[in-house]
Design a protein around this nucleic acid. Structure first.
Lengths: 168, 168
DNA sequence: TTGTCTGCAAACACTTTGCACTTTT
DNA sequence: AAAAGTGCAAAGTGTTTGCAGACAA
């Protein structure tokens, strides 16, 4: 699994930029740095946290430069980015949702089944439990995914405008 | 969302049998108790914990009585069983996997990405964390799903070439 | 040049749906 | 008899693949 070479909460300093990391990934595998791959990485790292293939495809086509790539290429590149450790993939409601995974601390999600929004959170305790459980079963944990489903404050009708954006 | 009428760890006493519960569910909705639905529930409650639609379909056809139902009916009935609170559904590697959810305490899973096996475990602490996190975000948690991916003891022991199996 | 990559269309795996006929109530 | 269910085939989704032409290295 890809682990950031360096990360600090205060300044978010990362040794390599995502593009650099991706290019390195490609080069060490004899893969080529094409216009499409460059556009996709560029776009992804410069945008929203969570998205799916279709969204990305549409977004690319809206760019002023008319950046675009075919559907297959988008899927192929997303897979490569996951392999490169830049993105994390999760399946929600039948389709794959991607989120940044480079230079960000691990976290889990609260998923509002009403508005489909994802709220991030992290818990050290959770990680502790994960490792304890794994050890208890002679299991080697590589990763975990916790999704708490329910309804967010807004959807429940809470009038108060509480913060919806939670950065871990 | 169905909740068992009665459950005790020591003796696992449940007020209604799964079949009874399902029939009640159907009747209160003006749905009918057909031969197919009966066969499916009967088969499901009497077998393995985890399975998918295709497996069930095949298994049904192998029964001595030649119990069988069409693919659409199997899918439709599984959905009803989930609605009735008898089964829980989760998506793993692209398809839906079902597990019993009536008269069983809540639990989570360790998923071996090598042999695809699922190991159950439960943790009260986890539930505590879940509720704490939800509260912290004014979120109403309805359910959660924690899947710890990695390699089980067996697969680790089997000294084979270490290949990566990505597929979520 | 050499071999990878792209885009297109077709293929895919899993699941759902339209509809005429069958079965439960 | 009335209403709901079933099975078949076909249609959907979201994602992947075969291949010929396009393009990095």
């Amino acid at each position: 699994m890809g682990v950031p070479a360096d990360f600090s909460l205060g300044e978010a300093v990362v040794a390599m930029t995502p593009r650099e990391r991706f290019e390195e990934f490609l080069q060490t595998r004899g893969k080529r740095i094409t216009r499409q791959r460059r556009m996709i990485v560029e776009h992804v790292v410069g945008h929203h946290e969570h998205f799916d293939a279709e969204q990305l495809l549409t977004d690319l086509r809206k760019t002023p430069e008319g950046a675009q790539a075919s559907r297959p290429t988008v899927y192929r590149t997303l897979t490569e980015m996951v392999d490169a450790g830049l993105l994390k993939k999760m399946v929600l409601g039948g389709r794959s949702v991607y989120e940044h995974d480079y230079g960000y601390p691990q976290h889990d999600h609260l998923h509002c089944t009403s508005c489909q929004s994802l709220i991030e959170f992290s818990s050290d305790e959770l990680v502790r439990i994960r490792d304890a459980v794994a050890a208890q079963h002679q299991f080697r944990a590589q990763s975990h995914r916790l999704i708490i489903s329910g309804m967010c404050a807004q959807c429940r009708g809470t009038r108060s405008k509480s913060r919806h954006q939670d950065r871990v």
